[in-house]
Measured scan of single mutants.
Amino acid sequence: MGSVRTNRYSIVSSEEDGMKLATMAVANGFGNGKSKVHTRQQCRSRFVKKDGHCNVQFINVGEKGQRYLADIFTTCVDIRWRWMLVIFCLAFVLSWLFFGCVFWLIALLHGDLDTDYKDDDDKSKVSKACVSEVNSFTAAFLFSIETQTTIGYGFRCVTDECPIAVFMVVFQSIVGCIIDAFIIGAVMAKMAKPKKRNETLVFSHNAVIAMRDGKLCLMWRVGNLRKSHLVEAHVRAQLLKSRITSEGEYIPLDQIDINVGFDSGIDRIFLVSPITIVHEIDEDSPLYDLSKQDIDNADFEIVVILEGMVEATAMTTQCRSSYLANEILWGHRYEPVLFEEKHYYKVDYSRFHKTYEVPNTPLCSARDLAEKKYILSNANSFCYENEVALTSKEEEEDSENGVPESTSTDSPPGIDLHNQASVPLEPRPLRRESEIGSRR
């Protein structure tokens, strides 16, 4: 089982795998120059863009038009607004034209077009017409509009002379109601789609790998820009990579689940303020055997998904993003964004995407760390350097704002901070800030 798991979770494809794949392509008759073999020097295209759209195009789909027309309502909801407006206008105009032609044909076959009612006051002739005051196609078209929109100006009306005319008036009224219901329903469904809710759900630009509770963890940050909550919010993550099976089958995008606390339930989050999602790199993680150097040379993509129900409509929305291997910062942490004021908490989104480097973060893999092949620094050293990194950030910001350097908390000259780390230190809580992250 261990060997199978290692093969499945191998992220960085070796040169031997690339040569094996190329040999397979030639042997199977696919070596026509169009096949692409992804190596370390040639990274694959992003499968999920940063804005959440999937970078996929469908080609050679059989009976595409028929399949889309069979699900016309979903098609109308998914198309762009400009095409929705075109369909909206065409549906009414074509129905008016169709029934206008029908009423014109009825008048033509009944002989109503030969009668001039402007110079004739004989009401008996008017009563013999199928539709009064309809003696041309324009008049028939206007009567069709008046019937379907129930305008009723009063000059044109159907008589009991022709039952077919009466039937067409009733039929057009029913068709008009159906068109109204369909168009209004599609427009309302399109307006109520929770897709735009994703514009106020954000992911951090970069993911980070750092120590948390004595273990290497992959972390990324999510935030909600609205005050309205995302009900039943939960997160998922998958690692996408290519691999070759033991039988020699090439899988271009193998999807591997990344555990973010599904078993323990901590994948469900209360997204009021930005939260750091934590994936513990343990023996079940696809990143277990990867060191910093392996991450730098790897070719994979981590897709992160945030799902929840919109509070206003109770409709489920899904926000997506992805991180390539070069977008994962090893040995970094996110800057705090949640600050405790006197009577409330304040979230500073200008710090949302910012990170700071944490010294002495192990550069080895989580496996080597678990097997004690890498000796961690003293816990006080880690905490102290973590505090120094934050303090230096604040000093830089104070210097930019014009604060005198004498007010900063610099260490005395001639003292090495790293050498001082081995000395037991008193706890130094942050002056006014605390970061709330997901705790395992």
Rank of each mutant, 00 (worst) to 15 (best):
G2K: 03
V4P: 15
T6N: 11
N7E: 15
N7A: 09
N7W: 07
N7S: 06
I11K: 04
V12D: 15
S13I: 08
S14F: 05
E15I: 03
L21G: 11
A22N: 10
A22L: 02
M24I: 12
A25Y: 09
V26N: 12
V26K: 14
G29D: 15
F30T: 15
G31T: 11
N32D: 11
N32L: 05
G33W: 04
S35N: 06
H38K: 14
T39K: 10
Q41K: 03
R44A: 15
S45V: 05
R46C: 02
V48Q: 07
K50L: 02
D51S: 06
D51C: 05
G52Q: 02
G52L: 00
C54T: 10
C54M: 10
I59G: 11
N60F: 05
N60C: 05
V61S: 14
G65I: 15
G65T: 12
L69Q: 11
A70T: 04
A70P: 08
D71R: 15
C76K: 12
D78S: 14
R80I: 05
V86D: 01
V86K: 02
F88E: 04
C89P: 11
F92P: 09
V93W: 01
L94S: 02
L97Q: 02
F99Q: 00
F103E: 00
W104M: 10
L108V: 13
H110D: 02
H110M: 01
H110A: 03
L113A: 10
D114K: 04
K118V: 02
D120T: 00
S124Q: 10
K125S: 14
S127P: 07
K128T: 15
K128Q: 14
E133V: 02
V134N: 00
V134Y: 00
N135I: 04
S136G: 14
F137A: 07
A139E: 07
A139I: 00
S144P: 01
I145Y: 13
Q148V: 01
Q148W: 02
T150S: 12
G152N: 03
G154W: 02
R156L: 01
C157A: 14
V158I: 06
E161P: 02
C162P: 02
I164D: 07
A165P: 00
M168W: 05
V169T: 06
Q172M: 11
S173N: 06
S173W: 09
I174D: 00
C177W: 15
D180V: 10
A181F: 15
I183W: 12
A189C: 15
M191I: 04
K193A: 08
P194T: 06
K196I: 11
K196N: 15
R197K: 11
R197T: 12
S204G: 04
N206E: 14
N206T: 07
N206P: 04
A207K: 01
I209Y: 00
A210Y: 06
R212W: 04
R212Y: 05
R212P: 01
G214A: 13
R221Y: 00
R221F: 01
K227S: 07
H229Y: 03
V231P: 04
V231A: 13
A233Y: 10
A233S: 11
A233F: 12
A233R: 06
H234G: 11
A237K: 00
L239T: 00
L240A: 04
K241L: 04
R243P: 12
T245G: 15
S246A: 06
S246R: 08
G248W: 03
E249G: 13
P252T: 14
L253Q: 14
V260P: 00
F262W: 11
F262S: 05
S264H: 09
G265R: 09
D267R: 07
D267L: 03
R268M: 04
V272E: 10
V272W: 11
S273L: 04
E280T: 12
I281E: 01
D282R: 14
E283C: 10
S285K: 02
P286Y: 02
S291W: 01
V303G: 02
V303H: 13
V303F: 07
V303R: 02
E307V: 06
M309W: 14
E311W: 04
T313H: 09
T317I: 05
S322E: 01
L324N: 12
A325F: 01
N326R: 07
N326G: 11
G331K: 02
R333T: 15
R333A: 15
P336N: 15
F339L: 15
Y345V: 13
Y349T: 13
S350T: 11
S350Y: 06
K354T: 14
N360V: 04
T361G: 02
P362G: 01
S365F: 01
L369W: 14
K372Q: 15
Y374S: 15
Y374F: 13
L376A: 11
A379V: 09
S381D: 07
S381E: 10
Y384T: 14
N386H: 10
E387V: 01
L390H: 15
T391Q: 11
S392H: 13
E395C: 09
E396L: 06
E396A: 10
E397Q: 08
E400C: 10
E400P: 12
N401M: 08
G402I: 12
V403P: 10
P412H: 10
P413C: 10
I415C: 15
H418P: 06
Q420V: 11
A421F: 07
A421T: 08
E426N: 09
P427W: 03
P429S: 15
L430I: 12
L430S: 13
R432C: 13
I436T: 14
